[in-house]
Amino acid sequence: MLKPPYPLETPRLLLRPFTMDDLDELHAFHSRPDVARYLYWDARTRDETEEALGTKIGRAELLEDGDVLSVAVELRETGALIGDLSLFWRDAEHGQGEIGFVFHPAYQGRGLATEASREILRLGFDVLGLHRVYGRCDARNTPSARLMERLGMRREAHFVENEMFKGEWSDEFVYAILQKEWKPAA
Protein backbone atom coordinates (compact mmCIF):
# COMPACT_ATOMS: atom_id res chain seq x y z
CA MET A 1 0.00 0.00 0.00
CA LEU A 2 1.27 3.47 -0.89
CA LYS A 3 -0.20 6.73 0.39
CA PRO A 4 2.37 9.35 -0.62
CA PRO A 5 3.06 12.18 1.83
CA TYR A 6 1.99 14.96 -0.54
CA PRO A 7 3.35 17.19 -1.78
CA LEU A 8 6.48 15.32 -2.80
CA GLU A 9 9.27 17.82 -3.28
CA THR A 10 12.27 17.70 -5.56
CA PRO A 11 14.68 20.59 -6.08
CA ARG A 12 12.53 22.17 -8.81
CA LEU A 13 9.20 20.37 -8.64
CA LEU A 14 6.18 19.53 -6.51
CA LEU A 15 4.45 16.21 -7.15
CA ARG A 16 0.91 16.18 -5.87
CA PRO A 17 -2.56 14.76 -6.49
CA PHE A 18 -4.52 16.20 -9.39
CA THR A 19 -7.42 18.58 -8.70
CA MET A 20 -10.14 19.98 -10.95
CA ASP A 21 -8.17 23.26 -10.93
CA ASP A 22 -5.66 21.49 -13.21
CA LEU A 23 -8.10 21.22 -16.12
CA ASP A 24 -6.88 24.14 -18.23
CA GLU A 25 -3.19 23.35 -17.86
CA LEU A 26 -3.67 19.60 -18.36
CA HIS A 27 -5.74 20.27 -21.46
CA ALA A 28 -2.98 22.57 -22.76
CA PHE A 29 -0.78 19.54 -23.39
CA HIS A 30 -3.24 16.62 -23.55
CA SER A 31 -4.93 18.40 -26.49
CA ARG A 32 -1.75 18.49 -28.57
CA PRO A 33 -1.39 15.98 -31.42
CA ASP A 34 2.40 15.92 -30.96
CA VAL A 35 1.95 14.89 -27.30
CA ALA A 36 -0.66 12.21 -28.07
CA ARG A 37 1.24 10.81 -31.08
CA TYR A 38 2.65 7.80 -29.20
CA LEU A 39 -0.05 7.47 -26.54
CA TYR A 40 -3.07 5.18 -26.59
CA TRP A 41 -5.39 8.15 -26.91
CA ASP A 42 -5.67 10.89 -29.50
CA ALA A 43 -5.38 14.61 -28.79
CA ARG A 44 -8.17 15.22 -26.29
CA THR A 45 -11.04 17.63 -26.43
CA ARG A 46 -11.68 19.68 -23.32
CA ASP A 47 -14.49 17.29 -22.32
CA GLU A 48 -12.20 14.27 -22.79
CA THR A 49 -9.49 15.95 -20.74
CA GLU A 50 -12.02 16.70 -18.00
CA GLU A 51 -13.10 13.05 -17.95
CA ALA A 52 -9.46 11.88 -17.81
CA LEU A 53 -8.77 14.37 -15.03
CA GLY A 54 -11.70 13.01 -13.02
CA THR A 55 -10.12 9.56 -13.25
CA LYS A 56 -6.70 10.91 -12.23
CA ILE A 57 -8.15 12.65 -9.18
CA GLY A 58 -9.32 9.26 -7.91
CA ARG A 59 -5.83 7.80 -8.27
CA ALA A 60 -3.89 9.57 -5.53
CA GLU A 61 -2.76 6.37 -3.76
CA LEU A 62 -2.09 2.69 -4.36
CA LEU A 63 -4.21 0.50 -2.12
CA GLU A 64 -4.01 -2.86 -3.87
CA ASP A 65 -2.49 -4.77 -6.72
CA GLY A 66 -3.78 -3.35 -10.01
CA ASP A 67 -4.18 0.25 -8.82
CA VAL A 68 -2.67 3.22 -10.64
CA LEU A 69 -1.09 6.25 -8.97
CA SER A 70 -1.57 9.48 -10.97
CA VAL A 71 0.56 12.44 -9.94
CA ALA A 72 0.54 16.03 -11.16
CA VAL A 73 3.98 17.58 -11.74
CA GLU A 74 4.13 21.26 -10.85
CA LEU A 75 7.05 23.61 -11.45
CA ARG A 76 7.84 25.09 -8.03
CA GLU A 77 9.10 28.38 -9.46
CA THR A 78 5.82 29.25 -11.24
CA GLY A 79 3.20 26.76 -10.03
CA ALA A 80 2.62 25.65 -13.64
CA LEU A 81 1.39 22.10 -14.26
CA ILE A 82 4.02 20.64 -16.58
CA GLY A 83 3.53 16.89 -16.41
CA ASP A 84 1.45 13.86 -15.67
CA LEU A 85 3.13 10.82 -14.08
CA SER A 86 1.77 7.35 -13.44
CA LEU A 87 2.91 4.39 -11.38
CA PHE A 88 1.00 1.21 -12.13
CA TRP A 89 1.11 -1.51 -9.46
CA ARG A 90 1.13 -4.41 -11.90
CA ASP A 91 1.80 -7.41 -9.65
CA ALA A 92 2.13 -7.35 -5.87
CA GLU A 93 3.23 -10.97 -5.55
CA HIS A 94 6.15 -10.49 -7.92
CA GLY A 95 6.86 -6.85 -7.02
CA GLN A 96 6.23 -5.45 -10.49
CA GLY A 97 5.39 -1.86 -11.37
CA GLU A 98 5.23 0.23 -14.51
CA ILE A 99 6.05 3.90 -14.94
CA GLY A 100 4.35 6.25 -17.38
CA PHE A 101 4.85 9.93 -18.13
CA VAL A 102 3.42 12.72 -20.25
CA PHE A 103 5.04 16.17 -20.21
CA HIS A 104 4.28 19.48 -21.86
CA PRO A 105 6.79 19.95 -24.72
CA ALA A 106 7.51 23.53 -23.59
CA TYR A 107 9.34 22.07 -20.57
CA GLN A 108 11.42 19.45 -22.37
CA GLY A 109 15.20 19.57 -22.42
CA ARG A 110 15.66 20.78 -18.83
CA GLY A 111 15.81 17.46 -16.99
CA LEU A 112 12.43 18.04 -15.34
CA ALA A 113 10.89 14.78 -16.54
CA THR A 114 13.95 12.92 -15.25
CA GLU A 115 13.74 14.68 -11.89
CA ALA A 116 10.03 13.88 -11.51
CA SER A 117 10.35 10.29 -12.72
CA ARG A 118 13.19 9.61 -10.28
CA GLU A 119 10.84 10.53 -7.47
CA ILE A 120 8.21 8.10 -8.78
CA LEU A 121 10.83 5.35 -8.97
CA ARG A 122 11.85 6.18 -5.39
CA LEU A 123 8.23 5.72 -4.30
CA GLY A 124 8.01 2.44 -6.14
CA PHE A 125 11.22 1.00 -4.75
CA ASP A 126 11.70 2.61 -1.35
CA VAL A 127 8.10 2.99 -0.21
CA LEU A 128 6.06 0.37 -2.08
CA GLY A 129 8.93 -2.14 -2.05
CA LEU A 130 8.76 -3.09 -5.72
CA HIS A 131 11.35 -5.50 -7.10
CA ARG A 132 11.20 -4.28 -10.71
CA VAL A 133 9.78 -1.27 -12.54
CA TYR A 134 9.42 -1.24 -16.29
CA GLY A 135 8.35 1.27 -18.89
CA ARG A 136 7.16 0.86 -22.45
CA CYS A 137 7.26 3.17 -25.45
CA ASP A 138 6.77 3.15 -29.17
CA ALA A 139 10.21 2.53 -30.72
CA ARG A 140 9.89 5.81 -32.65
CA ASN A 141 9.42 7.79 -29.42
CA THR A 142 13.06 8.73 -28.93
CA PRO A 143 12.48 11.23 -26.07
CA SER A 144 10.71 8.57 -23.95
CA ALA A 145 13.39 5.97 -24.65
CA ARG A 146 16.13 8.45 -23.71
CA LEU A 147 14.30 9.40 -20.51
CA MET A 148 14.16 5.78 -19.41
CA GLU A 149 17.86 5.38 -20.20
CA ARG A 150 18.66 8.49 -18.10
CA LEU A 151 16.73 6.86 -15.24
CA GLY A 152 19.15 3.92 -15.40
CA MET A 153 16.66 1.59 -17.05
CA ARG A 154 17.97 -0.94 -19.55
CA ARG A 155 16.27 -1.87 -22.79
CA GLU A 156 15.08 -5.43 -22.25
CA ALA A 157 13.01 -5.93 -25.37
CA HIS A 158 12.34 -4.64 -28.84
CA PHE A 159 9.08 -6.09 -30.06
CA VAL A 160 8.85 -5.76 -33.84
CA GLU A 161 5.44 -4.81 -35.23
CA ASN A 162 3.83 -6.21 -32.09
CA GLU A 163 0.64 -4.20 -32.26
CA MET A 164 -1.59 -2.24 -34.58
CA PHE A 165 -1.26 1.29 -33.26
CA LYS A 166 -3.28 4.18 -34.68
CA GLY A 167 -3.70 2.38 -37.98
CA GLU A 168 -0.16 1.11 -38.50
CA TRP A 169 2.06 -1.69 -37.24
CA SER A 170 4.29 -0.40 -34.49
CA ASP A 171 7.45 -1.58 -32.74
CA GLU A 172 7.68 -1.30 -28.97
CA PHE A 173 10.61 -0.96 -26.58
CA VAL A 174 10.46 -2.25 -23.01
CA TYR A 175 12.86 -0.81 -20.45
CA ALA A 176 13.27 -1.95 -16.84
CA ILE A 177 15.26 -1.46 -13.68
CA LEU A 178 15.54 -3.68 -10.61
CA GLN A 179 15.40 -2.39 -7.05
CA LYS A 180 19.01 -3.52 -6.49
CA GLU A 181 20.10 -1.44 -9.50
CA TRP A 182 18.21 1.67 -8.40
CA LYS A 183 20.41 4.63 -7.52
CA PRO A 184 18.51 7.66 -6.25
CA ALA A 185 19.77 11.06 -7.36
CA ALA A 186 22.51 12.41 -5.11
Rank of each mutant, 00 (worst) to 15 (best):
S170Y: 01
L130C: 10
V160N: 00
E163D: 12
N162I: 14
R140F: 07
G129P: 00
E168L: 10
M153K: 07
G152S: 06
W169C: 05
P143N: 12
R140C: 04
M164P: 05
L121Q: 06
H158D: 08
R150T: 15
T142M: 06
R132V: 09
E161K: 14
E161D: 14
F159D: 02
P143G: 14
F159C: 09
E156I: 08
N141P: 00
L128W: 03
G129W: 00
D126H: 13
T142E: 04
M153Y: 07
R154H: 08
A157V: 05
H131S: 02
M164N: 10
R150E: 11
N141I: 10
D126E: 15
H131I: 00
A145P: 05
E161H: 11
T142R: 13
R132Y: 01
L147R: 01
R136M: 15
D138W: 04
H158L: 11
F159H: 14
S170W: 01
H158K: 08
W169H: 14
R146T: 11
P143S: 08
L128M: 13
G152W: 08
R132P: 02
Y134D: 14
L130H: 01
S170R: 15
V127I: 07
S144H: 02
L147K: 00
V133S: 09
H131A: 02
R122Y: 05
R155N: 11
R155Q: 15
E161M: 04
K166R: 12
W169Q: 11
M153V: 11
W169A: 11
V133G: 09
